[in-house]
Design a protein around this nucleic acid. Structure first.
Lengths: 247, 247
DNA sequence: CGAGACTTTGACCGTAGTCAATTTATGTGG
DNA sequence: CCACATAAATTGACTACGGTCAAAGTCTCG
């Protein structure tokens, strides 16, 4: 039985992402309409690059999942982060080997961040989204630099859970992740096989339920401790750290 | 015979860091004087935190090395980046477990970035320094996420070499690194023992010379390929990627 | 010269990777 | 609605890169 999949069927997350995602409410109607005019659709698997003329540009994810990646000349791939509805990212021109690139993991809708940044409240929330994105890079570094495979998987799932919850994409503790185990592996610096085995172990331990693109985390609090997970500001405890660890 | 050490004797890098480091020349005298007035000394080992009142602040490294780190509740440590003369970083209040903190790896001199950001040229170069710092975070993620121990060490050394060269701290291909093998390990997500063995291997292969806080990289071009190193914009080739690799 | 901080080494272990084959979706055309 | 092709998830066997422990060996410096 498959665990995750659905790399393309989850794109209709919903338009209302911004109602809860970034704090963009209370913007006057004119600007909102102008904003929606810039929305653009990107199909699964497509890479998002800036128009040839316009050097750089910042986009806001309206719906769908995007992966920020880099491909090494020998084929190895590293995914830096996942962009969810409400997230902001800057797009560079080239998406070739060696540089950073954005790839749509599902059908995606993106819009121009500039079109939103008209009011001070909106531009402030955009700046905030960017800051959070940077903050997550540090978590990512800790994850692949100092956590074990099990901790990495849990930690990432916890982060995704919390981020999705904020934008209302978690129902009854469960949420969709349109991620292939391979994508997971490339994000966490592990091999697909090992990701697979780690997930199974976590399932056997009853820590989570995963399959068909859906994930449910059980015992959130305990998981946070197990994965050295720190939700945004508060930091949680973390087990082990003495000699060999089995478990 | 020791390889690296000198965790504290290398702080007098030189005042002229900015002459070549960031593009801050041609600023009027008044501002420069005002800037130097904000310079502050930090002793080796001390952690740099923002004053209790002033929430956040940005600093510019004038001389010495700083490590941007995070300590996990169980003691594991991850170093995100090394800050060299000319680099800019934002300091948060707390430097406790779980959050990001700056630690002086040598005696350090730092100044207020704000004091520099008066002219448009200066503030532009500061923004540039920040952007480069962010860019390096991605390299760091690739390093610990997808490179082997040997590649990580070489890659980091190459980066440090290039950064130090720009600010004139490389003489005859050699440069000082006031880094303990332990610091190296915590940055690259490896154990001290393995860092030690990797360095020895690299030495035996004649790829580099290291000891007494000095490092010299031999065959730069070949190293870049071996370590998947991409100097700033251009990307270099990368070997291996098929089955077991000995070497 | 002794204490403490670093670097080295050796022995041994285990987490995670590689290969390759199998099973299970998912999707498409008839 | 079924056969087949393809993508994704699993498994088993075996390997190796990197970690842990612990005991030297070196430096540095007061």
């Amino acid at each position: 039985m498959p665990m995750m999949s659905d790399v393309g069927a989850v794109a209709r997350e919903r338009r209302s992402a911004f109602d809860g995602g970034t704090n963009v409410r209370e913007v006057d109607v004119g600007r909102v309409q102008n904003f929606w005019r810039t929305v653009e659709r990107v199909p699964v698997g497509a890479s998002i690059s800036a128009d040839p003329e316009s050097r750089k540009r910042q986009i806001v994810v309206v719906s769908g999942w995007i992966a920020e990646t880099r491909i090494l000349p020998d084929g190895r791939r590293q995914i830096f982060a996942f962009l969810l509805p409400g997230d902001v990212a800057s797009v560079s021109g080239a998406s070739d080997v060696g540089s950073r690139g954005l790839v749509a993991l599902t059908n995606v809708e993106i819009a121009d961040a500039a079109a939103l940044a008209s009011g001070e409240r909106t531009s402030a929330s955009i700046a905030d989204a960017i800051r959070q994105g940077e903050e997550r890079l540090f978590d990512q570094i800790v994850r692949i630099g100092r956590l074990t495979a099990k901790e990495r998987v849990l930690n990432l799932l916890l982060e995704l859970h919390d981020r999705l919850e904020v934008i209302g994409l978690v129902k009854a503790g469960a949420f969709r992740i349109p991620l292939t185990q391979e994508v997971f592996a490339d994000c966490l610096g592990l091999s697909v096989v090992h990701i697979n085995r780690t997930l199974q172990q976590l399932r056997r331990e009853g820590l989570l339920t995963v399959g068909r693109g859906m994930v449910t985390l059980h015992q959130r609090h305990r998981l946070a401790a197990l994965a050295c997970y720190r939700s945004d500001s508060d930091q949680v405890g973390c087990e082990r750290r003495t000699g060999t660890s089995r478990d």
